[in-house]
Amino acid sequence: MNIYTASEVEAVNGTDVKLKCIFNSSAPVSLQSVSVAWYFRPPHPGHEEAIFYYSGRPFPPSEGHFREHLVWSGDLEKKEASITLLQVSPAFNGTYSCRVLNPPDVHGINGEVNLRVVNKPGFNLPDWFLGLFGAGV
């Protein structure tokens, strides 16, 4: 199993962002055979948590801060296991892992993408710096 993701993604606070996960499998792919799991690890010490599962149908999170902020946007027939995060905030900063299983093809390296939520696209100055110049910056 080969899984491909971007290494880093930047998203503007309050927008939606798609975390793409593409896979290649040595076994035939069918909607019944493939399962997908997404995990989140915060940037500061903390433990990894399961945030999404797909097996025959999507199982979005029913609790936590990803509840109602995560939707399935993959297409297994095209070997895509992507999710979309809705209305991201700085609480979404961290590392997301995409894990795909297609028995008997269950071994391989998971895809990992680091998400960074920013206030404006492109170059961002820290809030303390902007405060030096007042609200006009």
Rank of each mutant, 00 (worst) to 15 (best):
Gly14Glu: 04
Phe52Lys: 09
Leu70Thr: 05
Ser33Phe: 04
Gly74Lys: 01
Thr84Gly: 00
Asp16Gly: 02
Pro121Ala: 00
Pro42Tyr: 09
Leu132Ser: 13
Arg41Ser: 14
Gln32Asn: 14
Pro60Gln: 03
Pro60Arg: 02
Asp75Ile: 04
Ala135Asp: 06
Arg41Gln: 10
Thr84Ser: 15
Arg41His: 03
Glu48Pro: 01
Lys120Glu: 15
Ser55Arg: 11
Gly56Ile: 04
Ser7Cys: 00
Asn119Arg: 02
Pro28Asn: 13
Ser62Thr: 13
Val36His: 07
Arg99Ser: 06
Pro121Val: 07
Thr95Met: 09
Arg57Tyr: 13
Glu80Tyr: 02
Ile51Asp: 09
Ala135Gly: 03
Ile22Arg: 11
Phe40Arg: 00
His44Thr: 12
Val106Met: 02
Leu76Ile: 14
Val34Tyr: 06
Glu63Ile: 00
Asn93Cys: 14
Gly122Met: 06
Val88Glu: 05
Val100His: 02
Ala135Leu: 06
Gly64Ser: 13
Phe23Ala: 08
Gly14Leu: 10
Gly94Pro: 12
Leu130Asp: 02
Pro126Arg: 10
Phe23Met: 14
Val36Lys: 04
Gly74Gln: 08
Leu31Asn: 15
Arg116Gly: 04
Asn124Gln: 15
Glu10Gln: 13
Lys18Gly: 02
Ile109Asp: 10
Gln32Met: 07
Trp128Glu: 14
Asp75Asn: 13
Ala37Asn: 10
Val9Thr: 15
Phe59His: 13
Ser89Leu: 04
Leu86Gly: 10
Val36Asp: 04
Gly46Pro: 11
His47Asn: 15
Ile83His: 06
Asn13Leu: 06
Lys18Trp: 10
Pro42Lys: 01
Lys18Ile: 07
Tyr54Gln: 07
Cys98Glu: 08
Arg41Gly: 03
Ile22Ser: 11
Pro126Val: 12
Glu10Pro: 04
Ser55Trp: 13
Gly64Phe: 13
Val88Ala: 07
Pro61His: 09
Leu132Tyr: 12
Ile109Val: 07
Lys20Glu: 11
Ser35Asn: 13
Asn114Trp: 06
Met1Glu: 03
Pro126Tyr: 10
Phe40Val: 05
Leu31His: 10
Gly46Glu: 12
Leu19Asp: 04
Glu10Tyr: 12
Val36Gly: 11
Val71Ala: 12
Pro58Ile: 00
Gly136Asp: 07
Glu10Gly: 08
Pro103Val: 05
Leu85His: 06
Glu68Lys: 15
Arg67Glu: 05
Val118Phe: 03
Gly111Thr: 05
Ser89Phe: 09
Leu31Ala: 13
His44Phe: 14
Ser82Lys: 11
Gly108Lys: 07
Leu70Pro: 04
